[in-house]
């Protein structure tokens, strides 16, 4: 999954005249990636739906402003992250997802959370989704979206050194979680 190959793709589509057709193409190519990243941040299906919707609405409105030297995927994931943060900051989000605050600290997990994660397709996904968000994000950008260190740093707004540090701690935590499972 090499994100750099996507650049040519957007260069092609932004030259067309129909933004709705462009959006449709982008949703086909990146809809799942945007939704999966939104879910990995929020761990709520409905919230991931709403964030994905807002991301593509933003893209639709500003599609011709895309910097052609950038990676489409990195661009979309950055917008996804910013949108997720906006949702978290909004009073509306706070009113409807009070229990998440606790769950993120690993001190309590909502019933909904437990139920949703039962659907996760693999053991590692299940473990990754239990990581604190900053480690979860790093490992998902690395292993699922398969971004380079530079791209991850761009999306997360941190230095590459910080990305490496987060990955190191994420791997350590995952490894410990695996050991605990392996040893019953």
């Amino acid at each position: 999954m090499n994100s750099e190959t996507n650049v040519e793709y957007l260069k092609y589509i932004v030259e067309t005249d129909d933004p709705k057709a462009l959006l449709d193409e982008l949703m086909t190519a990146y809809g799942k990636e945007v939704w999966n990243y939104a879910y990995s941040i929020t761990r709520k299906w409905d919230m991931a739906d709403d964030i994905t919707q807002e991301v593509f609405l933003k893209v639709y409105r500003h599609i011709h402003s895309f910097r052609r030297d950038a990676s489409v995927k990195t661009w979309l994931l950055t917008i996804t992250r910013n949108t997720a943060i906006d949702f978290r900051r909004s009073a509306f989000f706070r009113k409807v997802t009070l229990s998440d605050w606790m769950e993120e600290r690993g001190e309590a997990r909502s019933v909904e959370q437990e139920a949703m994660e039962k659907w996760a397709v693999g053991d590692l996904w299940d473990l990754v989704l239990k990581l604190p968000v900053k480690y979860r994000e790093a490992i998902i950008l690395f292993a699922h979206h398969q971004l380079s260190m530079k791209e991850m740093a761009e999306v997360l707004g941190v230095t590459e050194g910080t990305v490496k540090s987060r990955l190191f701690h994420a791997r350590q935590k995952l490894s410990k979680m695996k050991e605990q499972i392996d040893h019953g």
């Binding site: 999954m1 949703m27 809809g31 799942k32 945007v34 939704w35 999966n36 879910y39 990995s40 299906w45 991931a48 994905t52 659907w119 996760a120 397709v121 693999g122 053991d123 590692l124 996904w125 990754v128 989704l129 490992i139 998902i140 690395f142 292993a143 699922h144 398969q146 791997r171 995952l174």
Partner: peptide, 18 residues
């Protein structure tokens, strides 16, 4: 890392999503 990429390259859920 290879195990991570192998397993996490799949979507997290078998249904819904986008």
């Amino acid at each position: 890392d290879k195990e991570l990429k192998d397993q996490l390259s799949r979507d997290p859920f078998p249904r819904r999503g986008f």
